[in-house]
Simulated scan of single mutants.
Amino acid sequence: MSAGNVTKVSSKITSKNQITIPKIVRELLKVHSADSIEWQIEPNGRVMITRSQPDLWQIIEEQENKFGNLSTTEIDWGKDVESADFD
């Protein structure tokens, strides 16, 4: 399974072209169900798999789904300060 600092594991491709990510890989990448992974394919045919980092809008959407939307009405600050005449 391991040679030096290289770990090799294998997975089979199902008839629907799906694979199961081995447990050791999920643990190393710190991924769980519903997480995203990124596949980087190099010109020499080597494939690297990394955990995708969510962008800001994904984080906001997750937080809204978990805690709700924090919309506020526009605040009326009163008379516009710039409208005052200064001599």
Rank of each mutant, 00 (worst) to 15 (best):
T73M: 01
M1V: 14
V31N: 07
K30W: 10
W39S: 09
Q40K: 15
P43L: 11
K66F: 08
E82C: 02
R46M: 05
K16C: 00
G4N: 12
V81D: 06
T7R: 11
N5A: 10
I37M: 06
P54C: 01
A84K: 00
D55P: 02
K12E: 03
L56A: 10
E82H: 05
Q58W: 03
D87A: 02
E64M: 10
N5C: 11
W77I: 07
D35K: 01
L29Q: 09
R46F: 13
L56S: 10
N65F: 09
K66W: 02
L29H: 06
T50P: 04
E61P: 02
V25F: 01
N65C: 02
K66N: 01
H32A: 15
A84S: 03
Q40H: 15
Q40F: 15
K23A: 12
K12I: 09
R46H: 13
V47P: 12
W39L: 11
V25P: 01
W39C: 10
I19P: 07
S2C: 14
K12A: 08
D55C: 12
F86S: 05
L70N: 02
Q58Y: 02
K79R: 05
M1S: 13
D87I: 02
I41Q: 09
W57R: 10
I19A: 06
D35T: 00
P43Y: 05
Q40D: 13
V9I: 14
S36L: 11
K12C: 00
R26H: 04
S10K: 13
V25M: 00
S83L: 03
S10H: 14
L29W: 12
N69R: 13
L56Q: 11
R26L: 10
K23W: 01
E38K: 14
S15L: 11
D76H: 01
